[in-house]
């Protein structure tokens, strides 16, 4: 159980970086991103170690997990409709994802851990392929001075800690509250950090500032032995796996916070409709992107306060 829980959270803690976190942090911290990563990892590891937390049944938890689910689904749908299925309506993109999530959630909880185990192996394989083929394109010269204020670097470190620790909170319950995630978190932060550095080292400040998915753009440069090219859509599955696990964790948390677990079969399609509605207005997506840190911080505080309080009174 301990091993499976760690693997689940390895994937889970990376989920919010795709499409939001990575691009946002790189734009803010620029060449000092490595400082943000180190600081962020230390802060995150301290939070993971010291903040003892377990989810209790409450409506507030359902609302928080639903908002997180919408954010995760929004990231995934946008990613798919930008990269793979450019002509497909976003609602239709979301239907198979919701069906998949509902199918797994209707099984026993152990299925989520098994799915995470399988995806973890694929994730590591794709990560190694990408790293090995892209490392030659990494140039230290791209880390040139860009007049980045120190507060941006600190703010990015805090955001890194927030983006990476919040998803782990929703997986904590009475069975998993005492399992240490520090080692897994550090490994996850290192693998995530190398993506940050690789992206910046390949694109540089100017291209990081203008590309919507810089982490995806670098994958277009993959060329294995000069004959295996244009495989960015396959390698980018590393992100897809992370977000699917994040959605499963949120769905599972919702399931555990309601009296009748079958409620998710109604709630998740409603959340898909909400996500599809949000996606009709690009300005709303921009707002989520712009204020994602504040939204996530509020959710983290609410999650912590609500569950801590109940824990003390019980």
């Amino acid at each position: 159980m301990k091993r499976e829980f760690n693997i689940l959270n390895y994937l889970n803690s990376r989920a919010l970086f795709m499409g939001i976190g990575l691009s946002k942090l790189l734009i803010q911290a620029h060449e000092y991103i490595w400082i943000s990563l180190i600081l962020g990892t230390i802060i995150g590891a301290i939070l993971i170690h010291f903040v003892k937390f377990k989810m209790k049944k409450s409506l507030l938890n359902v609302v928080i997990c639903s908002i997180l689910f919408v954010i995760g689904l929004n990231i995934l749908i946008n990613m798919i409709s930008t990269m793979y299925l450019t002509e497909m309506p976003k609602l239709l993109v979301g239907i198979p994802i919701i069906l998949l999530v509902m199918y797994i959630l209707n099984k026993r909880e152990v299925i989520i851990y098994r799915v995470a185990n399988i995806l973890f192996v694929l994730n590591i394989f794709l990560y190694v392929v990408a790293m090995l083929s892209l490392v030659s394109d990494f140039h230290l010269e791209n880390f040139t001075y860009s007049n980045t204020p120190i507060q941006n670097v600190i703010f990015s470190a805090l955001e890194f800690a927030l983006f990476s620790t919040l998803p782990t909170l929703i997986t904590r319950d009475e069975n998993t509250a005492n399992i240490s995630l520090v080692k897994t978190y550090i490994i996850s932060a290192i693998t995530m950090g190398t993506w940050f550095l690789l992206t910046y080292g390949i694109l540089g400040a100017n291209l990081v500032d203008i590309y919507r998915y810089p982490e995806y753009i670098i994958l277009k440069k993959i060329s294995i032995m000069n004959f295996l090219e244009n495989i960015e859509n396959i390698v980018s599955f590393v992100w897809l796996f992370d977000i699917i696990i994040f959605l499963l964790c949120n769905g599972n948390a919702i399931k555990k916070n309601v009296d009748n677990p079958k409620v998710i079969n109604i709630l998740l399609p409603i959340l898909l409709l909400i996500t599809a509605f949000i996606n009709r207005f690009y300005i709303l997506i921009l707002y989520i992107y712009k204020y994602s840190s504040i939204i996530l911080l509020i959710l983290a505080i609410l999650l912590f306060v609500a569950n801590k309080k109940r824990h003390q009174t019980s």
Binding site: Y84, L85, T86, E87, M88, P89, L92, I95, P96, L99, Y103
Partner: peptide, 16 residues
């Protein structure tokens, strides 16, 4: 039923 739904919804045929 699941197989039937999957056949129609998981093919990605919109971009085919």
């Amino acid at each position: 039923i699941l197989l039937f739904i999957t056949l129609f919804l998981v093919t990605g045929c919109y971009n085919y």
